[in-house]
Design a protein around this nucleic acid. Structure first.
Lengths: 227, 227
DNA sequence: CGAACAATTGATCCTCATCAAACCTTGTGG
DNA sequence: CCACAAGGTTTGATGAGGATCAATTGTTCG
């Protein structure tokens, strides 16, 4: 099923676009479906497309030669990713993008986006706002990693995820579906440590855990831990 | 002594500016001198100005409530910093900027810059290229911090500094002037560990150390350590 | 020369990574 | 519908890598 052009306005970068521009984008874009665990692109590939996540979920990861990987960002619906190529023509993706669930995306040609930016200030301004947000988030996470202990970092990760994509359950609690391994990659630690910390928190009634699942019972308690 | 407008073209963001634009910027800019150790701005201040470093050196640091601080970026001449405010009006600086040496800067009004961007695509494109660079660097450093051991991180810090600002000595070696404390803040460790590692490297003939000074004797050896 | 500050080095301790084994949960095929 | 396989999770035991603390030494500059 084709993307409704007007839905593209949900993408922050396209908020101020005209209807015509949205149709142009949707028309030039290529729709792609990726199964859970599949990759949109790999670290090092030439950055020929930027992607808009239409449905599903994804994560951006960077890995070292030794194969250790960290999670740089989690992408939810109507977020754009892989857009660096539109700014630096000929560049390579600095990270890999992997589907966390069956997903569909709209792939936008980087070169086309770049051309559009020349004549549409709203586009470059929007992209820049997005980028400053990422810079600030990365700077904070960097400081956090350098100065905070594991427990705090995990608390912060859960809070960030909650803010970004937490789905409220009927009882008003918040449910996240991530494995211990994924949480570890987001906090810069190991799955073992995440497991221990979550178990301890469960004992204290802060969270409720399950297989690939964490329910935040007491968000305020986590906030206190985080600071 | 006033800044020569044409010198502003050394700033990557202004590379494609017209002579007129440069004069406009230089005219609207406010010159400021800051002594060594002084601050251009503090984390949390409203981001009313972007700065161009005219002479001297500076560093951007972020600190946690507990007062621990990390070095986010080292700024050398003709680099721009504190420019986030031009993109997010009304925002606060996410980091503090401190002079590493007696410095002079040109302070550019954020609002004025923002207005210029509306009509000058070269400006937003240039800023975006700068930002993608920062994003990528922060992402790499983040991964490094999460996955690599201290020794490697210190090696990488020295190599980055070398690339950015190493001044070649007559004998072809490269000299950096940073205290152990500063190197620690750049590598996410403590001054004690930096001291130990440098001592060991000195024993191996890789570097030569002194008070607030590191001379790279064997850059290639460091590259090997770093990977 | 002395004060202030930077660096070194040793001793100790603590956090967390690592390894191993057992335990759950979920989905599948007989 | 049960049994089993596969993959996620828990928990314990162990150890390494650095942080921290303390004391000393070196360097710079007024």
């Amino acid at each position: 099923m084709p993307v409704n052009p007007l839905d593209l306005r949900k993408v922050s970068v396209f908020r101020d676009a005209s209807d015509g521009d949205l149709e142009l984008l949707a028309g030039r874009g290529i729709e792609r479906a990726v199964e859970e665990g599949g990759f949109f692109f790999f670290q090092g590939d030439p950055a020929e497309y930027a992607y808009v996540l239409n449905s599903g979920g994804a994560k951006l990861t960077q890995s070292s030669q030794s194969g250790q990987q960290v999670n740089l960002r989690t992408i939810s619906e109507w977020q754009i990713f892989g857009a660096l190529g539109a700014v630096r023509p000929g560049a390579a993706y600095p990270a890999s993008a992997q589907a966390l669930a069956p997903s569909t995306v709209l792939a936008l040609d980087s070169q086309f986006l770049e051309e559009m930016m020349q004549t549409r200030p709203y586009l470059s301004v929007g992209l820049m706002q997005l980028m400053t947000g990422y810079i600030q988030e990365m700077q904070s996470r960097y400081r956090e990693l350098a100065t905070e202990k594991v427990e705090r970092r995990i608390a912060n990760v859960l809070l960030r995820l909650t803010a970004q994509m937490g789905t409220k359950t009927p009882e008003g609690t918040i449910e996240l579906t991530f494995s211990r391994q994924e949480l570890a990659e987001m906090s810069g630690t190991t799955l073992y440590t995440v497991s221990r910390v979550l178990s301890e928190w469960e004992r204290q009634g802060l969270v409720e855990t399950g297989r690939e699942r964490v329910v935040i019972r007491n968000p305020h308690g986590l906030v206190e831990l985080a600071e």
